[in-house]
Design a binder for these strands. Structure first.
Length: 678
RNA sequence: UGACCGAUGGUGUAACUGGCAACACGUCUGAUUUUGGUUCAGAAGAGUCUAGGUUCGAGCCCUAGUCGGUCAACCA
């Protein structure tokens, strides 16, 4: 019996291999190392879920370590936000660490490096240092201070630390290799002078370690076994290892860095710098604007921790560049909310509905299921009366066959209430519908058990009772960018693709009164519309709801014959195909040829012949060498050759040889086609 | 014109030391449904960037290309 084994990613493969090679499981340890200079986004969630997920899987500790080595950019506000986000996602860190906790140790090690001649103080300008660095294709040159006496470097470094020099005046550099093909090895800077207030160490330090120096050594201090980071740090690995070599005690664990691809999401950007720009330019209101791909933005939008973790899980971890479709994220939140959200009714674009045979002044209390997916979720009360609001889109005077909603002369059910029939409309001078008049079947009340209540009608509408309804603001969101990968255009700024209609505010929506008790923690499904949650902007009596995501809507998809998403998506593909050369088409079709038969085979052969009209002999000839086993391609080439011969191509020896080879082949189709060309 | 990564349906990932290319999203049918939701049943869609090679057998191995990414901050 085959066990259905859950597939593991390449990082887990590495860990499994280490374990298999004798690495003790109890020494596994991970870390999530954010720099507190911005808010976490859905891309970070991939890293968080990877590291903490590994911790859960192997029962290993995971540290939260703030990489706070640059006081100019980092703030306590970000530390707090990051901790909040990770905790919200449901992860627990073993230790809350800071690179700044290790400043003294790092400094001491740096002094040791100087003492053994592996570091020196340089006093050139950053421009000079940069120009000496060379380029990826040409080696660098040594700094004139590279061989400064050890004692002098020691003295200068101490004075740097003591604040005797202005920022930018001196740096401490590692003495590695100025001609290394790896730019990071060309005497990288270990320390620079910065006079700025640090969020934790205040004014204690005037020198701050660079990333490479701080990061690997922090991993070592914390005895992190697997230090996982994104691909752009791949080139840093050599330096990471070199630094470790200088201080590593073989009795202790030696961390190892491995890299994975960062996660991108379609129709948004995923870099802190760009997200910050959106905030600063007021394109969005804040870091937690519900349109932002930040964890805080998604939270405010109504996403749940479960949905984000599920997304990270489904999206996976690998090493190639990627743009994950937002539809996967949307699937994850719908899946979660479908199981958990309380069903309520709300009308966003109202039109008045009058039930003419329902007694004026009367009202009654009906019961609405809280969640049909959850049998024990109970019901809540919803008032019903003679005058209701329904969605304007839910009525058409003459709906036609495929319109399942209310129209004149037709019956629909009002959700959890009665079956009604459209009778007439009242319009204003402009022809806009003011009221819809209908009659109801008093015996059809939902749940009454009568035959009338169990009648089948085409559609069911949501509604709210006008005299009982409460008003609220509802904010609907669309993708922030109109382009699938807004920051992938070399010639254009991502800002050019901002969607001007990403926010739609409905000032007056009508909700059933049950929603007056909504809290920020509640998740609702506005029936037939989508999932909604309360926004923190809400005040007493002034509720504001955010639309998290709409329900799947196959009807809208059918009726709007221009599904924008798919069209924009398929366009480039079509263009590419349109531009693809005829020869490539032939090869492509040819590959499958041997798997086809009957009509499909005929069609394939026909289209190969069509494409052959656009192929020159010069293009085709190289394919005569196609390996014998690639029969499909050879058949395709044979077919194309046939077309060229018909057009007057000479039968050279090369051609004859190819045909003869075809005649001798074991494949029937190839033989037949070859014989036709004798 | 260097070094290092990467390339599998529209998208994201699988395929343990070579053995019928799998899963999810998305798309399309049909059934069920007091949400045009959910659920259920099914379908289409790639022969694994190209060309050679090794092998009984290659997405996995070898060779040569092509395309994409990363690397020259006193950022991380």
């Amino acid at each position: 019996m085959k066990e259905l084994q859950e597939s593991i990613n390449f990082i887990e493969h590495i860990i499994e291999e280490d374990l298999a090679n004798g690495f003790p499981k109890e020494k596994l340890r991970f870390r999530f190392p954010p720099e507190p200079n911005g808010y976490l986004h859905i891309g970070h969630a991939a890293s968080i879920c990877l590291n903490f997920g590994l911790g859960e899987k192997y029962n290993a500790p995971v540290n939260l370590r703030f990489d706070d080595t640059n006081p100019a950019k980092e703030e306590q506000e970000y530390v707090d936000a990051i901790k909040n986000d990770i905790a919200w996602l449901g992860f627990k860190w073993a230790n809350e660490c800071y690179a700044s906790d290790y400043f003294q140790q790092l400094y001491d090690w740096a002094v040791d490096l100087i003492k053994v001649g592996k570091a020196y103080v340089d006093q050139q300008s950053s421009e000079e240092i940069a120009s000496q660095k060379g380029t990826p294709t040409s080696p660098g040159t040594d700094s004139p201070f590279r061989n400064r006496p050890i004692g002098e470097s020691l003295d200068l470094f101490e004075r740097m630390k003591n604040g005797e020099f202005p920022a930018g005046s001196y740096v401490l550099r590692a003495k590695v290799d100025m001609s290394s093909p790896n730019m990071h090895m060309r005497d990288p800077i270990l320390y620079r002078v910065i006079h700025a207030h640090h969020h934790r160490t205040g004014g204690d330090w005037c020198v701050y370690p660079m990333y490479d120096w701080a990061h690997g050594e922090s991993d070592y201090i914390e005895q992190v076994s697997h230090s996982l980071c994104t691909l752009e740090f791949k080139a840093h690995r050599e330096l990471y290892d070199w630094y470790l070599d200088q201080i590593w005690d073989p009795k202790l664990l030696r961390p190892k860095q491995r890299e994975f691809a960062r996660r991108n999401l379609s129709y948004t950007v995923m870099s802190k710098r760009k997200l910050l720009e959106l905030v600063q330019k007021n394109i969005v209101a804040s870091w937690d604007d519900p349109r932002m791909p930040t964890i805080s933005g998604l939270r405010r939008r109504g996403y749940t921790p479960t949905s984000i973790r599920k997304f990270s899980d489904l999206a996976g971890i690998a090493k190639r560049d990627n743009v994950t479709d937002v539809s996967l994220l949307e699937f994850c939140i719908r899946e979660d909310l479908n199981k958990t959200a309380t069903r309520v009714m709300a009308v966003l674009n109202p039109v008045k509905l009058v039930i003419t045979n329902y007694p004026e002044g009367q009202s009654e209390t009906l019961h609405l299921e809280n969640n049909p997916e959850e049998p024990n979720s109970g019901t809540h009360e919803v008032p019903f009366s003679r005058e209701l609001y329904i969605e304007r889109e839910d009525f058409k005077e003459d709906g036609g066959k495929n319109f399942f909603r209310l129209s004149l002369g037709n019956e629909v059910r009002l959700k959890s209430a009665y079956i009604i029939k459209g009778e007439s409309v009242v319009k204003d001078d402009a022809g806009k519908i003011q009221e819809i008049h209908c009659t109801y079947d008093p015996d059809s009340r939902s749940g009454s058990g009568t035959a009338a209540s169990e009648r089948k009608v085409k559609g069911t509408l949501h509604w709210v009772s006008i005299p009982h309804a409460i008003k609220a603001e509802v904010r609907e969101y669309d993708r922030l960018f109109l382009d699938e990968a807004p920051d992938a255009h070399e010639d254009k700024s991502f800002l050019e693709f901002v969607n001007p209609d990403s926010l739609n505010v409905i000032k007056e929506a009508y909700l059933e009164p049950y929603l007056s008790h909504a809290t920020l923690a509640d998740k609702f499904q506005f029936q037939r519309l989508g999932y909604f949650t309360l926004d923190p902007d809400s005040k007493d009596g002034q509720l504001v709801f955010n639309k998290t995501v709409g329900l799947r809507d196959t009807w809208a998809k059918q009726s709007t014959k221009t599904p924008t998403q798919n069209q924009t998506k398929s366009k480039p593909t079509n263009q590419q195909q349109g531009q693809r050369k005829a020869l490539n088409e032939i090869q492509q079709i040819g590959k499958k040829l041997t798997n086809l038969s009957g009509d499909k085979l005929e069609t394939a052969i026909k289209s190969i012949k069509e494409f052959s009209q656009e192929v020159t002999y010069e293009e085709l000839e190289p394919l005569f060498n196609t390996a014998a086993k690639k029969v499909g391609t050879r058949i395709a080439v044979m077919l194309a050759l046939g077309v060229l011969l018909e057009k007057g191509q000479d039968k050279t020896q090369v051609v004859i040889d190819f045909i003869e080879a075809g005649k001798a082949d074991g494949n029937d189709i190839l033989r037949t086609e070859a014989e036709k060309l004798i």
